[in-house]
Nucleic acid binder design. Sequence first.
RNA 1: GCCUCUGUGGCGGAACUGGUAGACGCGACAGACUCAAAAUCUGUUGUCCGCAAGGACGUGCUGGUUCGAUUCCGGUCAGAGGCACCA
Length: 859
Amino acid sequence: MSVDISEIAPYNFSVIEPKWQDFWLKNDSFRTDCNSSKKKYYVLEMFMYPSGKVHIGHVRNYAIGDAIARFKRAGGFSVLHPVGWDAFGLPAENAALKQGGRPQDWTYKNIEIMKKQLLSLGFSYDWKREFATCDEKYYKFQQKIFLAFYKNGLIYRKKSEVNWDPVDNCVLANEQVIGGRGWRSGAPVEKRKLSQWFLKITDFVDELLDGLDHLEGWPEKVKIMQRNWIGRSEGCSIDFKTDDGDEIVVFSTRPETIFGATFLAISPDHSLATKLASGNEKIKSFVEKCKKGSVAQEFLDRQEKLGMDTGLTVNHPFLDKKLPVYIANFVLMNYGTGAIFATPAHDERDYEFAVKYDLPIERVMVSTADGDELPQVDDGILVNSDFLDGLNVAEAKEAVIRRLCEMGIGKREVFFRLLDWGISRQRYWGCPIPMVHCDKCGVVPLEEKDLPVLLPRDATFSGVGNPLEKHEVWKRVKCPCCGRDAVRETDTLDTFFDSSWYFLRFCVNDRENENLLEKKDVSQWMRVDQYIGGIEHAVLHLLYARFFSKALTRCGFVDVSEPFENLFTQGMVCNVAYRKENGDWLFPEEVQKRSNGEYEVIATGEKVVVGGVEKMSKSKKNVVDPDAIIKNYGTDALRLFVVSDTPPDKDFLWSDEGLEGCWRFVNRVWRLFVYAQSRGICAKKCQRDVEIDTLDPAVQKLYKDFHRTIKNVSDSLEERSMNKVVAFIRECVNSLYSFLEQIKNNETVFSLMIRDLIKLLAPIAPHICEEAWSMLGFEGLVSDSNWPVYQKEYLEVSTIDLPIQINGKFRGIVAVGVDDDEEVVWEKALQLPSVQSAMAGKSLKKKIFVKGKIINFVL
RNA sequence: GCCUCUGUGGCGGAACUGGUAGACGCGACAGACUCAAAAUCUGUUGUCCGCAAGGACGUGCUGGUUCGAUUCCGGUCAGAGGCACCA
């Protein structure tokens, strides 16, 4: 019995979607198959912090990953697609402080809630591998890693100036300081001197840098950011001696400008500055002023240059002249040697400083380009430089370094911007560091048998200081060396430590496996074939994870030089935001449109500024709750929407109309499936072959075009252009609607098209497809079915519409055979009225013919 | 300041190695169905001129290469992101 397609009831997602979610979960439908002979494919989305709620940004990230996982699965790969929780971190501790209770409880409760949300989104995860980084088991492994790194000399403790976040009351790594502010709190970072654990990431600096050249599957942008962050610079260090016999080693990448040097500058943190300060009140107060300045935001913004003459001088290495030594706040202690020679004529900072303090400026280079303004920073030809005169920069650099080396005062050197990674955090909710402080033995590692060091369950959170440090019972321990009373390390590990190796642990098939990293499992699955996450981790997590792979390899745990073969960075989800004129943000429900098109606050009638498109965030009151969307439109419509329209690597603009459109499309597809069923379309009808030549021309074209769709959808998925995937499927559904009358009686063609359409849509809208698959009597799950294959010969066309140009302008088309010779095509083209009228009275200068592409008459 | 990326209809965006610019969607407009509305289906929709056939213009701006440029090259403007006294 046939039905009217427009009368079919809408897709009943509230029943159908939970049904399949339960089925997949109960049957472990997406459990990783480790014993398969199929090629492996490891898809991973950056795991999430259990903040309490899944937001739309997560949905988009995971929808992209899930589409790839399902596509690869259908494409004949054995797919690993795990899920877990990056569960340590400050918010849990803040929640404990604010609402009482323990961070543990808060975290695990959030995980429970968010897991439910993920399940309601129908992602194809292997839930048997799920873990949280705060699981005792996971951090026990992590303590093992810490000890192994320690034994291998990759971890050390040192007292040094660190970044202190005054809001989070905690140290930050350099990578976590963004524009002088804490990455989480946004507070201006202060400097403090503390004893801290450091990870020797600088030991791998060359590998980390060179490895980037081979990461072809990474966005260029991320690689550039990492290269800049590592910041390699080549140059030369030069030894100077003050009249008092103090040594000052300077570093320069421009040693060829040495003849233009007019003074030396050392950092206020330089050991010589400290020494001088101790004997001189004026210098002491200056140094202190500089240190304060390096903290205050206003100084950072103004970058005002401050300096003080030490009264000391050094000899110029080549000239018979003395150079004064200044302490200058623009010289950084943590780069190079903390001292420079200044060449004001050829360096902007030196120039600014020299002008301010009235120091000489001597030109030693003339530009090859025009203009002779100082400072001249571009390369030129050396002048006033004795043995370097007339040389270009490269030649002069070589010559001067060679001479300095011969004199025994210079050395070729490479410096990096990258510093070692400080991993100590003065917080409770993190992985305890398995070290002990003993008065007699010093800092001693625990033995493996004493692991794990578990977090105490009875800590108190007062908001001041580190709860572990104040826990008098927990912190007492016997020294593993001498057995006397000692104290535990009370700092915990930076949570970025946790996320630097989780993707390796996901490889281990048996969650209970006591081996830290089962080598066989890791080598089976690594590298991650497709990693997906936000670009904000370009120099944080993504650099640390690369370092960990190399460090764990060095320690013999694994053999993974690089963790992520292909990296995809998805864009953010944005929404319009409203605010009052005083800047307060407003919820969309609080505003309404006036008749003149402006917006006002409903309650008060105040004028509303439509604040443009902003990243969805609670503070801007423009978030959309996935649960509400799922309740009203279903998961498939939501998933479809977040990958439609916008390429996944670009920012996505939320719109209710767009979502509505996807909901309409889901129903359009649903009606098509139900209609097909009513026409008797079912699995059985797919068994006959299609005799393409006997088909009605319209049906034949439809069927051939469908094979083009299969190719287009497959290619677009492969290149991660989900927006195109959706567009091609929509196109295909549109033409099925248009030719419904012609196709409805051809059961074989109709069946085959519906079957493969279900498969094409399944990676993005899995529930409706699973339902249709079962409804039409196909065996098993569409999630387990093979990806459709297109017939190449159907894509080949015999005739094409060839565009015709006159003087490069489009004038019409002419239908020709693909293989028609030039003469034949010309004949046909010349008969076109538009060509004839354009040619009238003119002579043909040239004819261009590109087979299958174009004809162009040049008159 | 330095580095990187991006500029295509009212909007999100398509366009293979240079070859019919604007696929697909949103919005808008019209028609069918309906007592009516919603839903659904079918059209139209870059701008300008024209009753029409048709024509002119059009991918930030500006030069160039080419028979032909959204695509390649030079300059320039605008926006986004990263780094920011890194010697």
